[in-house]
Design a protein around this nucleic acid. Structure first.
Lengths: 201, 201
DNA sequence: TGTACATCAGTGAACGCGCGTTCACTGATGTAC
DNA sequence: TGTACATCAGTGAACGCGCGTTCACTGATGTAC
């Protein structure tokens, strides 16, 4: 039966939130519409009152997942002591927690492989979100121009995402930990004390 | 009908080779047994004369894919001019060609996200292959001990894999190229002239 | 070396399964008067 | 403000589809004598 506008809005938002979690935890294919709607307390048929297709939801949930992580990193960097913003980003991203809880982490290591095989609709949303992700964190990266800083941040995010993805893939905790630690050391060294907003203050 | 031992051996090898390509091009889920057997010139039923299950093939094909790429990078590094081995690895890995032809590239950027959701059998094979991948290339990385060099190489491979995966995921050629170029610059800088086999000669 | 029989690689129909999507239906909400 | 009606969020059965896997069968290969 028909629901109030407020209920409808809330339901739609819950679906996107659950999808953003499920996507990162299970991947695009494994995230089922039925399971998702069950988590929101409804049956699968109602889904299509909110979204044109699964792809449309995936596109929106990708954006959501990336925006969440961007906001978390931004907050961490802004609260970091002077000159420590980029180090803080690197430490937070390459943490055991981030490796172990994909559902609440960055969508790049969880989904980049899947996304390249998705339809245009999804890839486009993902691309836009990645650009604004790197764009908003760029001020913490070294470089003389906005472009340089954004490119540095893109390379850093891509690299850290690779480290998390590989650390999740391997079946050996010791090896996984070594991947995280060695990657931390690598990026801290590459972006040592020189760059970033603080150096320009 | 029954085939000669030589035929059987050849068929099995063809299946693994096609699987190693298809896996990297399409991902684990999308690689179908029927399609694969069709490419080898047979029907799907014959598959189970060679493999216990799809998972068993995926495990073997992962190893194959990683070993191929390791051999290619090893050859490139060994043929590089003195002091250029690591730079050559970085240039070859972070190339447009590698981004554009996943079927013939490294299995890490193509599969790491998928692998973390696969059964133990697959993850274990992948893990072993990754260890020997990093182990065999370790001599080109900086570090005083074998362990240090292997960890550096793990971090480098993970990072470069992340760059390739993200470059493949985004829907914008210019952004994709910038990810590759910025990543090249990052790793060339981080592993500048100091490290590696040549520096220890 | 020749023969009889067991083996087994490959065929193709059939299986169960889970998926995304559709659709007739329900009944509370929103709207027009 | 009250009433009549249109709207539409949600239900749950049904759809087609493609997948991995099984299985009875075929006939050339391998093996035992």
């Amino acid at each position: 039966m028909r629901r109030s506008r407020e209920d409808t809005r809330r339901t739609r938002q819950q679906i996107v939130e659950e999808a953003a979690r499920a996507l990162r935890a299970e991947g695009v294919e494994a995230m089922g519409i039925g399971e998702l709607m069950g988590r929101v307390g409804m049956t699968h048929g109602g889904f299509y009152a909110h979204f044109r297709s699964k792809d449309a939801l995936v596109a929106e949930a990708c954006t959501r997942g990336l925006d969440e992580q961007r906001a978390a990193l931004l907050a961490a960097a802004e609260n970091a002591p002077d000159g420590e913003a980029l180090r803080t980003i690197i430490r937070a991203y390459l943490s055991r927690r981030h490796r172990d809880v994909p559902a609440e982490g960055c969508a790049i290591p969880a989904l980049s492989t899947d996304i390249s095989r998705e339809p245009k609709e999804v890839r486009h949303a993902f691309t836009d979100a990645v650009e604004s992700y790197a764009g908003q964190l760029a001020r913490f990266a070294p470089g003389d121009t906005e472009e340089e800083r954004r490119d540095e941040m893109l390379a850093l995010l891509a690299g850290m995402a690779g480290a998390i993805a590989l650390a999740r893939a391997v079946d050996d905790t010791a090896l996984s930990d070594r991947i995280l630690l060695a990657s931390r050391a690598l990026y801290q060294r590459a972006f040592a004390s020189d760059g970033g907003e603080e150096a320009r203050r």
